[in-house]
Design a protein around this nucleic acid. Structure first.
Lengths: 126, 126
DNA sequence: TTCACTAGTTCAGAATTTATGAACTATAAA
DNA sequence: TTTATAGTTCATAAATTCTGAACTAGTGAA
């Protein structure tokens, strides 16, 4: 098992961050890691937003978040602890992570309201 | 030719925006549209950051930006005019677009400095 | 040591998405 | 008309992502 790769702060790119967080599963995982400041391991996410996800897929999602520089993963005994690198990122790209997390929150709130009102948007486009 | 689709403001998603702007070509196109407040047509972008891009690919890039709700495209005679929807977006997701555009600017500035210093980062990972 | 168990990674092929050349549509002007 | 320009759509090639199966690494017990 090759050692986990973490990019140095100056190698982190906007494209990588946006790509990593443009996937709803990864966005949910990342939001969870950011909000819960204690370390999160992978198996906490075997179901993400009511969908169960194979652990190989989950492992890839974590790798993408790690490669993008969003999280730092460390092995502690048998399990992995994941923490966000948001303090570092806030220095390199001020406001970026905060704005994205906030936007996701706004969107979730809107969706919850829509659902409560009985709207039946399918998400398909015309 | 089917009429161009533009999502209504409440159907615009964070995932869509991040995905659209996670591609460097689309990010460059969007930055150009935002900065030049007058309307931009597609053929202004036949080369983006020193790479020439087929017009079918460019057309798809514009469609993705449009579907994501980032731009509005209107036919004026034989050509298309593209304008950013950043005012609307700033209302729905305050600070998001601004933070992304700023982050891209910071990154470009860093890359320019790196190049001047003669660094030879390949962008490949170990 | 060896066995079993847990947590996660890696691999390889399937499924999905993206890129692009060729053909097409729409508008304008000669 | 015909020609030209600007861009879209289609079909398929190329690249990416998902996932089951096999593997690696650490822990604890016999």
């Amino acid at each position: 098992m090759r050692p986990l790769f973490h990019p140095s702060i100056e190698d982190i790119t906007v494209e990588g961050i946006l790509h990593a967080l443009s996937d709803p599963v990864r966005a949910a995982i990342y939001a969870d890691i950011v909000s819960q400041e204690f370390a999160q391991n992978c198996s906490n996410f075997l179901t993400v937003s009511n969908k169960s996800i194979p652990k190989s897929t989950l492992s890839q999602h974590f790798r993408i978040l790690r490669d993008a520089g969003l999280i730092r993963s460390e092995r502690h005994g048998v399990e992995m602890h994941n923490v966000s690198r948001c303090a570092e990122l806030a220095k390199r790209f001020p406001g970026l992570i905060h704005a994205i997390v906030t936007a996701h929150t706004i969107q979730s709130a809107g969706e919850a309201r829509g659902k409560k009102a009985g709207a039946k948007k399918s998400g398909k486009r015309a």
